[in-house]
Amino acid sequence: MKHTISVLLQNRPGVLSRVTGLFSGRGFNIESLSVAPTLEADISCLTLVTTGDDAIVEQITKQLHKLIDVIKVTDISETDYVEREMALVRVKAEPSTRAEILRITDIFRGKVVDVSPRSFAVEVTGTCDKVKAMIDLLRPIGIQEIIRTGTIAMTRASKKF
């Protein structure tokens, strides 16, 4: 099963390799990973998507927490959460397909961010599934390049007053 895990860590040199080394050394999967500073400049948030059964994910969270530089580990997929991913997609743009590309972009609330005589670069954000759906629709038209970020995720705030 897929799990999205959020890790708060000290923003220190080498800390990312402690996390990735843990995954490679113990044979855990990383599907995607993204990391950037939080409100506090010396603390970073790392969001990673991994797969595994309950026992493996339990080990992953425990092992992450054991790293000295790690402050907090949350398995976000066990909460109510929002997740986002972004992709930049360069599509071959012939006179006959330009309108179609713009229509698809519009449907997914995407944006054209770069135009050339022979291609459009399109930006889309959303859940992993949404990004994938748009890419699948653009593929027959002729995708030249795709750059995707990893997933980032945030637990929804309590709705109570």
Partner: peptide, 14 residues
Amino acid sequence: IVGITRPCTKHNYL
């Protein structure tokens, strides 16, 4: 050496 010993120390520092 910090890179080399990362997986076999409890923690390490440069």
